[in-house]
Amino acid sequence: MTLTRRSRDWRGGVFRGLLLSSLLVGFVTLAALLVDVVSTGWGYVDGTLFTSPPSIDPAIAGARPAILATIYIGILLILFTVPIGVGTAIYLEEYANKKRWYNRLLELNIQNLAAVPSIVYGILGLAFLVRGLGLGRVLLAGALILTLLVLPTVIIAAREAIRAVPDSIRQGAYALGATQWQVVSRQVLPSAVPGIATGSILALSRGLGETAPLIMIGAVTYVAFDPTILGPFTALPIQIYQWVRLPQEEFRYLAAAAIIVLLGILLSLNAVAIWLRNRYQRRW
């Protein structure tokens, strides 16, 4: 009995094996990277890294301005992307008439924008924000350009979340005499919060890891003072990029340490996303 079952199931076994190995590719690569970075950089994650400005001397170099700037950019990014992204998603899902050609064009464009390489946004930022609007090479310009970069992702995630709210909820609310405003603000949005939060935070993580557009709009590599919104800035990915290029070997360890800090920031953001999802999740 078992013998015949086994011989009949070999295809299933092979398939399962293939699936497992594709899982391993991602997992082993990630684990190897993490082990390498942590073992190289852990000794350099110390007080100096968080409190000192960068220096030509690896013994006293830190990344305080870069860490602060990355946190500032993160906060601005949330403030800019969430209202605009969620607003766009609500319009597209709840208000837009999908039979109209301009709404379909809008949708198509948003999908395409999500696939535009980040360096292109950098060039746009340089031409439009830094030089065109005369904003200059400041932290705000960096945050704005990253906003444009992650906005399509946030919109798509928020739309998915809104679409996942069962129509019966909306119909039920209408049946009780609710207006569209009441339906959206009291039923649809609260139900979509977990999905929107997860999507936004994952998009934010992506934005914080970006280097190319920030280099393009002229984030500098040596800033010894704490960043301000309208002042020159550097960011963690740029600090890492710069340290890797320097001749002294110790800077490679510092770069690894800065990667650990960046990973720490991203992982805690992801943790917040998971917590939000679990706290507000509803099942129908």
């Binding site: 942590v38 073992s39 100096t48 690896p58 360890y253 690894a256």
Partner: peptide, 9 residues
């Protein structure tokens, strides 16, 4: 993690 420590300053 057992990376190399930063030299004393």
């Amino acid at each position: 993690g057992c990376g190399s420590e930063r030299e004393s300053v």
